[in-house]
Every structure is written in structure tokens, then in C-alpha cells.
Write a protein that binds this DNA or RNA. Structure first.
Lengths: 140, 140
DNA sequence: TTACTTGCAAACGTTTTGCACGATT
DNA sequence: AATCGTGCAAAACGTTTGCAAGTAA
């Protein structure tokens, strides 16, 4: 998905389209890795020098609210964000290069049903992440 | 598992058994919920007043290292810890009362194999958490 | 006795807030 | 013109570190 689409989404939800938001959105859309707010700040400032870190936080907050971005949980912490425009998806992360890949998790449904039955829970959300080595990192 | 077992484990790994560690361990072992360091601190201080927050952090670090405790990732963040004495397990969390239940995730293996095949990844770790309402919270 | 452990205070990095100025609609 | 968004500075927060005193082995 393109940065323009995201900006349109922001606009349609009553938010204004500004240079600062443009730089943040472009940075996150283009990245193949999950980025921390400071990483977004450093990268986006190459596109728009006057950008402030506070604006990065506030923009990421709005993007998360619109489900354009999702949080990535890792051993180091869970302050990293990645583009998530296709709705809820499961993540596969390369422990070497950090590259993130989404995968379909249809197979999770039966597991959820079975756990719900065994435990008496009503399950409302699930969250699955896999970690390993991507093809190109395996070959090095 | 009991607090004594944990303290023995600490001892066998070259760590000393102290009142401070006893209070932290007892608190975490007894809890059915994941606790943040500050929550552990507040609760453990009822058992040992002189306890410092720093010691809680340092003790949780050692317990995590020995795999007696595992980190719980939630929307609010990933600073909560829960007893994890049975090795790697999957968590089911009640969104209302916070109660945590472990469940077997044998069914995850085929999914992992299939993703590995499709993506070319070598998958080394996985991480699955379910969220919902526990039986007693559903009935209220 | 020795080395590990402790609590305190201070440092640190991250995230949030208050505010006057600036920009978008 | 009105409202929303901005960057700055400062505050708040969670976590880590240095250190001298205390404690387990």
C-alpha cells in the first residue's frame, strides 16, 4: 500500500495531512522491518528536517488507532511498529536481519476452538509470532 | 511448584538465598496473574519490608534466566512476569480479571512446518497468546 | 573471611504533557 | 477564521548503574 492511501485514510478520519505526517507515513510504509519511534524519527527527518520526535509518537498513535500500523513484540521490548494495512496478520521475524514477513494463520482457528472448549474461555483475540532465520540469512 | 523449590534452584545455580529473594519468589509463585515489577515490589514488601525495587528487578532477571518466570506480552506493554516452571508454554489471558492459564500448543507444530516450507525460513522460536474471558468472568 | 547481595541515590532512555506558535481546512 | 497540529522544554515514568554497607556461605 502507498503513503498516499494512508494519508487519505487519515484525512477521511478527520485528521489533517501535514508534511510531518507525510514523512512519518512514508518512512513506515517503505520499511521492511519493524521500527522504533526513534528509528522512525531519524529516518523521517531525512525527508522533513523540522520533524519532532513528539510528532512521531502522536502520528504512530493515530496510525495504530486506524490499524495501519501494528506493534511488534520482541525479546528486547515491544516498542516497534510495522505497517499492517491488510488487517490482523501474523508475523514471522528474522532474528538476524530483522526482516518481517506476514503469513496466513487460518490453521490457528481449530486450535483456538479446541482451547476454548477445554478451558471454558470465550476467546476474543489471538496473537502469534514466529522467529527464525529468513532464506537469505540462512545462506550466509 | 513451591517457593522452596525455586530457592533451591537459585542456590544450585550459585546464587544466594536471601530474605529479599524469598519474598519476591513467594509473591510470584503464589500469583495467578502476571505481575509487573512494581506490583511484585508492593506485594513482596508485605512479607519483607526492607525490600528495594532494584532487588525485584534483579531477582526477576535471574528467575527469567533460569526459566522459572516468563514475560507476558499485552497491549499495555510487555513488562509483566508470570511463573513458568513447566518450561515453554502458551498463555491464555482473561481480559477482565487478568487470570492467566497455560495450555498445550502441540497443534502449533504443523502450522510452523507449513509456514517454514512456504517462506523458506528456519523457524527457531514461536510465541502464541490468546486473550478472552475466563469462565467465571463470562458468567457475570 | 570472602564474595555475593542489598538498598539508596543518581543516571539514563523513553514516553507524555503544557504551551505558544504555525499550518491546514 | 477556526481548529487542529507542531516543536520545544520540561515533567513523568520505568529501568539501570555505581557504590558503600550488610549478609550468606
Amino acid at each position: 500500500m502507498s503513503a498516499e492511501t494512508w494519508l487519505t485514510q487519515l484525512h477521511e478520519n478527520g485528521y489533517r495531512v501535514t508534511k510531518a505526517r507525510g514523512a512519518v507515513v512514508e518512512t513506515v510504509v517503505q520499511s521492511k522491518r519493524a521500527l522504533t519511534p526513534v528509528e522512525v524519527y531519524d529516518m523521517a527527518r531525512k525527508k522533513y528536517r523540522a520533524l519532532g520526535l513528539v510528532t512521531v509518537y502522536r502520528t504512530l498513535e493515530k496510525l495504530e488507532e486506524l490499524h495501519l500500523v501494528q506493534r511488534v513484540h520482541q525479546a528486547a521490548g515491544c516498542q516497534a511498529f510495522i505497517s499492517a494495512c491488510q488487517g490482523h496478520q501474523h508475523l514471522l521475524l528474522c532474528q538476524n536481519c530483522g526482516q518481517a514477513t506476514f503469513f496466513e494463520g487460518d490453521d490457528v482457528e481449530p486450535l483456538i476452538q479446541s482451547v476454548a472448549k477445554k478451558t471454558g474461555y470465550e476467546i476474543r483475540e489471538h496473537w502469534l509470532q514466529l522467529f527464525g532465520l529468513c532464506e537469505s540469512c540462512r545462506n550466509n
